[in-house]
Structure formats: structure tokens, C-alpha cells
Design a binder for these strands. Structure first.
Ligand code: MN
Ligand code: MN
Ligand code: ZN
Ligand code: ZN
Lengths: 138, 138
DNA sequence: CAATAAATGCACTTCCATTGCACTTATTTT
DNA sequence: AAAATAAGTGCAATGGAAGTGCATTTATTG
């Protein structure tokens, strides 16, 4: 079991207090979070720092970005050993129309999608919208 | 073959010069367009009018909205007899990372997507990103 | 033709994302 | 250890896109 410090260092990210806090915040969350969510959790810190921290995490594949169609970018921690970039490793995301939360369905890989001749598929974004398990009452 | 006027009237949209022009502009385009695209095509007209025209078209299922992940909403004419709302009639969209254009792949319906127990799927957005046929050189 | 309703145009607002620059803190070099 | 360098943080400002209130124009109805 590696510490957060070790994880960050292994990805060439310097360890700072802020980064540890934000990492822990994301790790504790079961849902994708917006920058505003992070801002609200760390009101003493500046927006920009939070923004750039998340961007750093994104570049280094600590988190992945989620476009769930709400128009607001969300972020979630990458699974251990995830290859966000590789097409075969893409999972789908679920956005609840009721509680407005978005979750990674990391077990649900995106199926093979056929595209017409001449088109080359490099990346796929699949978002299912509906009612989540918490809101559907089972 | 029905005229554009007849189509609009059949959907309870009053025919105006602006609406006819915008409809024709969309019809002639083979790709999804942004509001900015429409603005550039009709520089004499006001943003708001264009915006509201597109929104009216959207409400009445003349066009459908496309979120291709660029962060900018795009629009495209609905197919004749399309049921955008019905989940079984959803098609996928392709966004070219090279020319930055997005097209409807209306022939390519979205496959059945499994979601975990307790989750209820109501809508699906599937965007494939890559290189389009024009840019791939066949 | 008058009354009413809808469409259009202008100005303004909000929200999120992003950047330039100054300042602070950490790391490296002498 | 001090100086030099680099990286991280904070503040302020910007920009783009979406959306809204209200006045004015244009179309529709009685
Ligand atoms: Mn995810
Ligand atoms: Mn489409
Ligand atoms: Zn929910
Ligand atoms: Zn292309």
C-alpha cells in the first residue's frame, strides 16, 4: 500500500499541503466533483490554486475529467492503474437527473462502437442519464 | 414533398423571414453548428433572435442539441420523423479532433447500455472522437 | 382599423474557465 | 549557509457562452 505522497511523487508531482488535502477530498468522495465543490470545501484557499491543482492532477492522470452534459466540468480520481487515454479502458458515467450527481461506473466499460468507413475512433464519451440507485429507492 | 413553411406550420411555429433563413442555413450544413456559426452567417441579425430561434426549433423538435465535449453547444436538424426524446432512437455523434467538426451519424443508433441494478437509464449521450472521413484521407 | 399577441433587438447579467503578474515557499547551486 | 533558481500560491482581471428583462417592431385577430 503506497501513501498519497508516494503516489504523487511517482507521477512527478511535488507534494504540498494543498495537494494532499485536495487528493484526500477527492478520494473520500464517491461522486464526481466540480471545481465549485472543491472551492466550497476549501474556502480559505484560492480558486486558482484549486483549479491548477486539479489541472495538474489531470495532466498526470491522477484524476480524469467528466463531461456529463450539465455544462460544468467534473473530476474524479482515476482508478489505480487506469489508462484513461486508452480506448479499451474507457468506462461510462452516469448522471442522475434527480440528485444531479455523477458517478463513474468503472466496472462498465464502453462497448465497441462501429463508425462508418473513413472515420477513425480515438476516444469515446458515453454518459447515461436517468435516476441513480440512491434516488430510485432501490 | 413539403415546403419549409409547411414543416414549420405543422409544428406550430410561425413562419418568419429569419426562421426560414436559419432553417435553410441548417439544412444546407452537413455538420452540427454552434450559435457563433449562425451569428457569423447572419451578422445583421441580433444574437438573441438567433438564440431564441434555435431554442424554438429545439423545443419543437426541428433541431436537436449536441454536446460533443467541446464545451460549446451545437445544433443539427432532426431527421424527418425522428424521435430525439425516445431512447431507442438515439444516434451517435462524431467529433473530429482535426477539423473540429461534429456530425450526426444518424444511421448509427446507440446500442443497449447496461447499467447497474437500481439505476434507471432515461437518456444517453454517446460521442466518438477521432478523425473524420474527410480528414483521414479516406 | 383597433386591439392583441408574437417576434425581434438592445442592454445587461451570470457563470464558469482561464491567464498575467506579483509574491511566497521550496529546491538547487555555489 | 547564502544566493540563485524554480515551483507553488494568491489576487485581479479577462473572455466566452448562455440566458433574461424590457422596449420596440411586426404580424395576427376581431
Ligand atoms: Mn470516471
Ligand atoms: Mn445528431
Ligand atoms: Zn440521484
Ligand atoms: Zn475532420
Amino acid at each position: 500500500m503506497q501513501t498519497i505522497e508516494q503516489l504523487l511523487e511517482s507521477k512527478d508531482i511535488r507534494v504540498t499541503a494543498m495537494r494532499l488535502l485536495i487528493y484526500k477530498f477527492l478520494a473520500q468522495k464517491q461522486v464526481a466533483v466540480t471545481l465549485s465543490d472543491i472551492e466550497n470545501a476549501f474556502e480559505k484557499a484560492d480558486r486558482t490554486t484549486l483549479y491548477r491543482t486539479v489541472k495538474t492532477f489531470e495532466e498526470k492522470a491522477i484524476v480524469h475529467q467528466i463531461d456529463d452534459g450539465t455544462g460544468i466540468t467534473k473530476y474524479a480520481l482515476c482508478e489505480k492503474g487506469c489508462n484513461c487515454e486508452i480506448e479499451t479502458d474507457l468506462h461510462l458515467h452516469f448522471h442522475c437527473n434527480n440528485c444531479n450527481e455523477t458517478v463513474c461506473l468503472t466496472e462498465h466499460k464502453i462497448p465497441q462502437i462501429k463508425v462508418p468507413n473513413g472515420f477513425i475512433s480515438e476516444d469515446i464519451n458515453l454518459v447515461v442519464k436517468g435516476i441513480c440507485d440512491k434516488c430510485s429507492g432501490q
